Amino acid sequence: MSSGTAEPVRAVGRAPLMRVRSASAPAPGRDVNEDVVFRLGPLVGVLDGATVPAGFDTGCVHGPEWYVRHLAARIGLAEAARPAASLMSNLAAAILAVRADHGGRCDLDHPGTPSSTVCLLREGGDQVDYLVLCDSPLVLDAGGRVTVVADDRLDVAMAELRRTAALLPAGAADGATRFRQAVTVQREWMNQTHGYWVAAADPDAAYHAVAGSVPLRGPGALRRALLLSDGASSAVEEFGLVDWAGLLDVVTMEGPGALIDRVRAAERDLPDRLRRHKRSDDASVMLCEFDPGDSGA
C-alpha cells in the first residue's frame, strides 16, 4: 500500500480553503524515488526526475533524486521571496539557483544533465495559477467540466523518433543499439525549439511551460485539481483503466495511494510486448480540493 499525507493549506487572503492529499512511491524493486511531491503554503507541486539509463553519462556528479529535491527547495525559496511573481519567473529563478548548487563540479551543458518535469498549482485570492512543463499533467474540475492541462511536446518528439527508427533497414541495428541511438537523439532534442522542454540547467525552459489560471469563484470555479507524474497518469494514458473524470473520482473517493495501487496491478498484468518503455515507474499523485467560494462573485 502506498503511503500518503493529508493536510489543509490556506493561502493569505480571501481564497477558499485548499485541502491537499498526496501519495508518492518508487517503482517496485527500487529504493530511490525520483519523484517529489511538496506543499509550501499556497503552492503545491509534483516533480518527476528523468531516470538515467544504465551506461549513459550525464556530465554530473549528482543524480535525478538530488536534482528534484534541490529544485523543489529552490522553487519554495523563490516563491517565499517573490510571492507575487509568476510561476514561470519563479521556476526560472529556481533552475538558475540549482545551477549554483552544483558547485561548479558538473558539466551543465552536457545533454544528459539531470532534469525534471514540473507541475505546479498556486492558490491565491480569487484564482489558482498553474504551470505544466513536460509530461506531468494537471487535471482540473472547474465549472462542472473536467479538462487536462498537458505539455505533449515530449510525446510528439518521441513519436517522431519512433517514425525515424521505423525507416531504418531491418537488421540495421540490434535492440540495444537502437535504444542507445534513441536516448542520444532524445537528449539532443531536450530544451530545443523543435524538441521538448524540461527543467534542467537552462532557466529559459521555464518560459516554455504551459501556464494559466482558473477562477475560484463564480460559475467556472475550480473544485478539484489533480497533479500527476507520468507514472500515475499512465492509469489513463497507458492502461486505460479509467478516463480523466473517472481518475479524479477514484482519487477523491479512494485516496491518492489507491490510484498508485491500481497502476501497480496494471503494470504486473501487462505483457512486456505491450509496454511503452518501462516495466514500471515512480508514481506521484496530489489531489487539491476547494471549498465553494461565493458563486455570485
Rank of each mutant, 00 (worst) to 15 (best):
residue 175 G to Q: 09
residue 21 R to Y: 05
residue 293 G to Y: 08
residue 249 D to M: 09
residue 39 R to K: 04
residue 46 V to E: 01
residue 201 A to I: 00
residue 148 V to G: 05
residue 44 V to E: 00
residue 32 V to S: 09
residue 220 G to H: 11
residue 68 V to A: 05
residue 205 A to E: 01
residue 92 A to L: 08
residue 269 D to R: 14
residue 65 E to N: 12
residue 54 A to M: 07
residue 142 A to F: 04
residue 89 S to E: 08
residue 82 R to T: 10
residue 268 R to H: 10
residue 126 D to S: 08
residue 25 A to C: 12
residue 29 G to M: 13
residue 72 A to L: 02
residue 265 A to F: 02
residue 223 R to P: 07
residue 195 G to S: 03
residue 24 S to L: 06
residue 179 F to D: 13
residue 226 L to F: 10
residue 27 A to L: 04
residue 211 A to V: 13
residue 53 P to T: 02
residue 208 H to C: 07
residue 177 T to M: 10
residue 235 A to Y: 06
residue 217 R to E: 14
residue 34 E to G: 06
residue 271 P to E: 10
residue 21 R to P: 12
residue 240 G to I: 13
residue 175 G to Y: 00
residue 186 Q to A: 15
residue 244 W to Y: 15
residue 205 A to H: 00
residue 254 E to F: 06
residue 189 W to A: 06
residue 121 L to S: 05
residue 102 H to V: 12
residue 230 D to P: 14
residue 239 F to G: 14
residue 108 L to K: 01
residue 162 R to F: 03
residue 64 P to W: 10
residue 218 G to K: 09
residue 23 A to T: 02
residue 106 C to T: 05
residue 241 L to M: 15
residue 120 L to V: 04
residue 79 E to A: 15
residue 88 M to G: 15
residue 276 R to M: 13
residue 228 L to S: 10
residue 178 R to H: 05
residue 148 V to R: 04
residue 201 A to Q: 01
residue 124 G to W: 09
residue 35 D to R: 03
residue 253 M to N: 13
residue 294 D to S: 09
residue 165 A to V: 12
residue 99 R to W: 00
residue 36 V to K: 00
residue 6 A to F: 01
residue 123 E to W: 00
residue 179 F to K: 13
residue 159 A to E: 11
residue 122 R to E: 05
residue 248 L to W: 07
residue 286 M to I: 05
residue 250 V to T: 13
